[in-house]
Amino acid sequence: MVKFILIVFICFSVLLGQELQQTEDACQSPLIIKANKEGMRSIKVTELPQFVIDLWKCRKEKNSKKLFKRINEKTYIEDYKTSQQLVGFTATCAYCSAASVLIFYLVKLSGN
């Protein structure tokens, strides 16, 4: 009898646990919330597998398409904000590269 009660108790607790998981919104994982706030680039490479799993679980939820679109848009905006201008040594590298390409084609076009 004690064994029977114990088995029933375990079964119930497992079932209740599953019920809880099903009602939880898969799109509200910490990584998806982070990506939604700061863009995809805020997700580290080590967090990437978990993030992909979270996105996979989220895809069937209501409004998931809107959420994905919002994350993408946030990423574009963050990329644009952080790399809008050439800063520090990057400007020097860019000028060197652009000037050398320009001179090369001018020389080529003028027939050496």
Partner: peptide
């Protein structure tokens, strides 16, 4: 390669490689 870049517009990147 060293590649430097900037975004003149959203989604569009201009890069310089040397």
């Amino acid at each position: 390669v060293v590649e430097t870049y900037f975004f003149p517009k959203k989604k569009l990147e201009v890069n310089f490689t040397i």
